[in-house]
Amino acid sequence: MQKINIYEHLKEIVGDTDRVKCNETLSAYTFTKTGGEADILVLPESYEEICKILHFAKDQAMPVTILGKGSNVIIRDGGIRGIVINLLHLDAIRLEGNSVVAQCGAAIIDVSRFALAHGLTGLEFACGIPGSVGGALFMNAGAYGGETSDVLDQAVVADLSGHLLNLSREKLSMGYRSSAISENEYIALEGTFSLCPGDKAEIKEKMEHLTYLRELKQPLEYPSCGSVFKRPPGYYAGKLIQDSGLQGVRIGGVEVSTKHAGFMVNVDHGTATDYIMLIHYVQKKVKEKFDVDLHTEVRIIGEDTSAE
């Protein structure tokens, strides 16, 4: 099926030409401000639309890539073939007793603020995580001693055939930056966070303190993909990079942050290739100095593997 026919079919599914885009540059959809073009980008507004898109893609044997807020992803400069589904239009948050139910496109920061507004404690750790709920579920996002798995009770996901599944806490099998969602290539659509009543003033004070620490330690003034590497057992990635003398090292327009060595920042019109080359350089140098392998936390997707 030709691209134009695929475009027309997807337009029929979502009923809105503005939510289906051909040859869309993806740098506008990532925190690094890098990335090539998507063959077709579609922005669904319901689970039904998502399932129809997935079913259509499978029927046409077309690859599908899921994109949320783009905070922990590097999209290669060659872009992404097939269909890219961006989930940011699904951003509803609602209260159910002492639980907060949030759709995949909602910012996890907004979910933590929603919990605060209703006097619920448990999500304070997420007040500075820049990603979406879908991303948090996918990788079991965490910060400042808390993880998504600490409060996640259940999730609604879709498989690549377009079937909806309800996964309990046990079936989510969440570990360090991993989950059954990522392992089975499910698409996280909704999470239910089980929280506890708390004192609003205390919740707010904790969130303000964590926000202060984040602003103090992280290079928020530049585009970045957040923490680049997972924490190696027994070590901290940032400390290893710092002790390797790599802060300030630059390839192209991307450099290892001088504020926090665990971050790589886009300081001068950097490209995805710059990011990937710098990642590999840092991995090589840390391995040489400490014999420790650094594994990426950031997802690297798309075409153009020349830097690898």
Rank of each mutant, 00 (worst) to 15 (best):
G252H: 00
E8Q: 13
K217M: 15
P232Y: 00
H280E: 14
R81M: 04
G248T: 09
G122T: 01
D59H: 11
F193G: 03
E49Q: 15
N23A: 12
G191C: 00
L41Y: 00
Y186F: 14
I129V: 12
A61Q: 14
G78H: 01
G70I: 01
K11L: 10
S306A: 11
E297D: 14
R299D: 14
L10H: 04
F290C: 10
E48W: 01
G162S: 05
R250V: 06
D18I: 12
R81N: 14
H9E: 09
G175P: 08
G97S: 14
E255R: 10
G245V: 12
A155F: 00
V249P: 01
E48Q: 13
S161I: 07
G146A: 05
N166W: 06
T25D: 12
K285F: 05
T34V: 04
A237P: 05
K239S: 12
H55T: 13
A102M: 03
K204F: 09
Q218K: 08
V14I: 12
N86V: 05
V292G: 14
S178L: 08
K206M: 10
A180G: 15
Q242V: 10
H269K: 09
F31K: 00
E48R: 11
G70R: 00
G245C: 12
V228L: 06
R177K: 12
N98W: 07
A180H: 12
V156H: 01
V151R: 08
S227H: 06
C127T: 11
E308A: 12
